[in-house]
Design a protein around this nucleic acid. Structure first.
Lengths: 165, 165
DNA sequence: CTCATACGGTTCGGTACCGAACGACCCGGG
DNA sequence: CCCGGGTCGTTCGGTACCGAACCGTATGAG
């Protein structure tokens, strides 16, 4: 491993904790996973979503409903990657802005079905190309082959953490 | 690219949006980055941090202070990857639990210096090995070489998103 | 039919999170 | 000496986030 590649924070960790019996490779994966993820999230929120006053999670909810169509609330939560209570809150917020609609299921009285309204659909259809352009920008320093390797390694890690899905 | 590798959600996206002129490679990188990151975070919080009633961010604050020693509050926020207002809140929480201490700087009256208390140091020293063992577990499905590639690609992406640091 | 159990969504309490705005403090120019 | 602009940490308002607890609805056992 070439130390010159390391971030300053990583070098400091090795200096301070290098003598301990730890898995520094795993540590580098997890800490860079979070650094990258939160940096990208903040950039997206600031440069794409802020003008529409949408949070990252609200955006993902609109996107999931766009891709999957009307869904039961529990499936929406699972697809977005949030808990059911959080889903309740986010859907309530989006419902208040008229972007999303709640409806009771006919077959099962416990279920709530969530779907995009017409303004919600227009919003995500207008917003997603901008969002994707920003995705392209944050990955632009990687070659197409590197992007595929990265996506594939992340997928593999995800599958081992969430065996169910 | 082998479609068999894709997650169900990714396949659905291609089916619905495949006809649009979008960068699907970048989309796969960003969405899997977030799926992996939030899955790992939830697992860590549930299996390592919940017993100590620590959030992920509180844990990272303790860890950064452990590695770097006493810091000024603005540097702490930057190192943890949160805003200054958030840092104020988290430090207040940790201060209330006696794990962290605030002190005024002698040279500059605006600055606040934050450091671990003795119980805080004991806490992070006891907790970090467990945390690292869990890090090793979530990355265990990747070979050492794959782990280094993954860490390196994430590092490269991070540097392009945050040119400053 | 009855009722125990399980499974929906929601509520509650506590924490995290950010941008904007604010007051305290620093420093350089008049 | 003072005052204007920059930099701190903090406060404020709004949203997100989770686990535990709750309540209404479904379903299977008897």
């Amino acid at each position: 491993m070439n130390d010159d590649e390391l971030l300053p924070a990583e070098r400091k960790v090795l200096e301070r904790l290098g003598h301990l019996p730890l898995d520094f490779r795993a540590m580098a994966v997890v800490s860079n996973l979070f650094r990258a993820s939160s940096a990208v999230r903040r950039k997206m929120e600031a440069e794409v979503l802020a003008t529409d006053r949408l949070s990252w999670t609200s955006f993902v909810v609109l996107w999931v409903l766009w891709v999957w169509g009307e869904m039961e609330s529990r499936d929406l939560a699972a697809a977005v990657g949030i808990s059911r209570p959080t889903s309740t809150g986010v859907v309530t917020t989006l419902e208040g802005r008229g972007l999303v609609r709640r409806g009771k299921s006919a077959e099962d009285g416990r279920m709530v079905r969530v779907s995009l309204t017409a303004p919600g659909r227009r919003k995500i259809e207008a917003l997603f190309p901008k969002f994707n352009a920003e995705e392209a920008e944050v990955t632009a320093h990687l070659s197409p082959a590197e992007q595929e390797v990265l996506a594939s390694l992340l997928r593999s890690m995800l599958r081992s953490v969430q065996p169910g899905d």
